[in-house]
């Protein structure tokens, strides 16, 4: 690499300008003179083998499109035709309260009660083996519908927290499902909660806005 050289600087008045420089014309040493003519194309034909390859590729892709376009149906969503959105043929999904209840529980309850159902000692009461949960179903249904606040003793341990209300978030069917799940998970063996029970209690409570306290729940029959 040759070291770059600085041009001599001349004050403007004494600088020598010739015609070429003044008119900004090109010096023969400059790039435009050194370049070759403007480009153009030759007339060689497309190689036959390439033509054949293109035809085969186009044919193959045509077959692919025919196979996987499904007549350009807007309601087919995957190439195995497993996901078809068609109002006429959708099968009613079987509602298994235990399966649905587990889904609801995992989404909404595990932050406090944990996936083990054991809660967090000192902060959140356990559900596994809790007599509040496993006794008459009217108590847990009320807790879910309207919430629970204040001191409570669960299996000989003291808690003082707040359980949010889920009555507005979930339907009667969903509340019955999640309660049925927790009443039968982790070794719990209480009977399932019926949707009708939840409906009945919801109607009885009406538009009550107060949350329940432990003492109030103890009087529930």
């Amino acid at each position: 690499m040759t070291p770059p050289q600085k041009p001599k600087k001349q004050p403007f008045e004494t600088a020598q300008f010739d015609d070429e420089a003044l008119h900004g014309r090109h010096d023969p040493a400059l790039p435009v003179y050194q370049e070759k003519g403007e480009p153009f194309e030759g007339n060689s034909e497309m190689p036959f083998a390439l033509f054949v390859a293109v035809v085969f590729l186009a044919f193959g892709m045509g077959v692919y499109l025919t196979r996987y376009s499904f007549d350009f149906d807007f309601f087919i969503y995957d190439h195995n035709k497993h996901l078809i959105l068609d109002a006429g043929s959708i099968k009613e999904e079987v509602w298994d309260p235990l399966v649905q209840g587990e889904k609801i529980f995992k989404k909404n309850c595990t932050q406090c009660h944990q996936t083990t159902g054991l809660g967090v000692p000192g902060s959140y009461p356990p559900l596994a083996g809790s007599s509040w949960l496993l006794g008459i179903d009217a108590i847990p249904v009320r807790v879910l519908l309207k919430g629970l606040e204040g001191p409570i003793e669960v299996e000989k341990a003291q808690f003082n927290g707040a359980m949010p209300t889920f009555g507005t978030k979930f339907s009667d069917k969903q509340i019955a499902a999640v309660l049925s799940y927790v009443r039968q998970a982790w070794g719990n063996a209480a009977p399932a909660v019926q949707e009708g029970t939840v409906t009945q209690i919801r109607q009885a409570l009406g538009d009550r806005s107060r949350v329940f306290s432990a003492t109030e729940l103890m009087s529930v029959k």
């Binding site: 390439l50 590729l57 186009a58 499109l65 996987y68 007549d71 995957d78």
Partner: peptide, 27 residues
């Protein structure tokens, strides 16, 4: 993704057919 499968199939066909301009230009 949750879009009609024919659009994806057409996209795949378009992508594979891109071999044609690429190879032709490369040659």
């Amino acid at each position: 993704g949750p879009i009609p499968v024919w659009m994806i199939s057409a996209g795949i066909v378009g992508s594979i057919m891109m071999f044609v301009p690429v190879i032709v230009t490369a040659i």
